[in-house]
Design a binder for these strands. Structure first.
Length: 110
DNA sequence: CGATTGACGTACG
DNA sequence: TCGTACGCCAATC
């Protein structure tokens, strides 16, 4: 697979510490393609068929909204997973998202 | 091969 | 402040 973009996305997502979250755009920016933020979301969609588990529930949009919660299950499974990690979610949005935000570009060596 | 779509983000009115 | 329009790029129809 030459598309190392997806692989990098999965790798970064796996590196997200428990109880922390990040955004699609942040990951895209870390990979040097912030214009392709949509591809990050697409990668998440494909992450379900990846051999290794990808904590996609720790990835939300720039506002901290659980836009892809429907991809986890019929109910609020994504929200449940986040709350289980200590992240409070209200109205499909992460409370204090700014505090829980984990910037790969900042945490990981650029 | 062209058109449409999408787990985003920014710009504009 | 809120809603709409558009750009990006890969996958799907």
């Amino acid at each position: 697979m030459e598309s190392r973009f997806f692989q990098d996305v999965y790798e970064v997502v796996r590196l997200i510490p428990k109880g922390r979250v990040t955004s699609y755009g942040a990951i895209a920016a870390y990979l040097g393609a912030k214009k392709s933020s949509r591809m990050v979301g697409y990668a998440m969609n494909n992450s379900h068929q990846q051999p290794d588990y990808v904590p996609a529930h720790r990835v939300v949009n720039r506002v901290g909204m659980l836009t892809g919660k429907h991809f986890f299950g019929p109910g609020n499974e994504m929200q449940t997973l986040l709350e289980k990690e200590g992240i409070l979610v209200k109205d499909d949005k992460i409370i204090n998202f700014k505090e829980f935000f984990w910037d790969p570009q900042k945490e990981l060596t650029v």
